[in-house]
Amino acid sequence: MVRVEQLTHVYPARRKQPPRLALDRLDLTVAEGTFFVLTGPNGGGKSTLFRILCGLMRPSAGRVLIRGLDLLRESAAARSAMGVVFQKPALDVHLSVEENFKIHADLYGVAPSDYRRRLDEGLSWTGLADRLNHRVGSLSGGLARQVELVKALLHNPSLLIMDEPSTGLDPGTRRGFVDMVRRIQRERGMTVLMTSHIFSEAEEADAVAILKEGRLLARESPARLRASLGRELLVIQTTGAAPLAAELAVRPGLKVQTREGEVRVEGPDMTALVQEIFLNRPEGIRAISLKEPSLEDVYIHLTGRSLEQEESEGTRLSGGGAP
């Protein structure tokens, strides 16, 4: 469906800023009919890849194939096969919901007969049926997102690409939005490629790619990524993290990592370890949790640091992520 081959992008030098490598010979394949999430730290290359995929930027090198169409050479045909949802709404807030839909249909050359049918279909997924005449500017953030989604699907694309579509939504609305996308994707057998930095969204996906420094750090199903941790994960919050970690690290079969005030342990038979810690060292320990690893844990496992740390450092070093 989507094939990215040896894709390299370098942002040209600007005043006081040297050229910046955003994508580094990236290879990536998204299989037909899957829900694919692209994640990773800010500045890791997600937004750059998104902008190249929707044709807003031309890469330094490499190519992108969408259903076998070369995006850079046969761009009009490739664009017709694609629906795009931006991080910031691509809607005219002065126009009504329906007027925005009609502009989209005209831009994509949707025949009037198809328009009506697809609009009805789109409205059946959402709560927009009685809002067609409302101005987009008067809608809530969640409803405006639904407008974007229905709009992006009006020309019946086989690929939907979305750049952090849940930005600015509260957790409940965000969840609802992702569920809706997932449902439509299954119904239509459509391919969805979505960038996200929210790991709970990635856990819904068929496959997840983690992009860091313009390279693919990992690409797996969320379940297998979790399984790559292999075992249960024990997180101990304690004031004496260093001595505890030192003691646990010498034991065979345990993988131990420390972060501020926290010791993370992976290994077999965590339950026994919990009992032991309780019996021997209750002082200094604030909390112990035993959990199935989340994708964020996978990320920590893969890079040895948390996403938050990455983001604060990324901001300091590069003055913000890719534009």
């Binding site: 929707c54 044709g55 807003l56 761009s75 009009a76 045909a77 664009r79 017709s80 694609m82 795009v84 931006f86 910031k88 709404p89 691509a90 809607l91 005219d92 807030v93 925005n100 502009i103 989209h104 831009l107 994509y108 050359g109 709009k151």
Partner: peptide, 10 residues
């Protein structure tokens, strides 16, 4: 706004 939509359209 709408310009993004126009630019990615065919």
């Amino acid at each position: 706004g709408l310009l993004q939509e126009v630019l990615v359209s065919p």
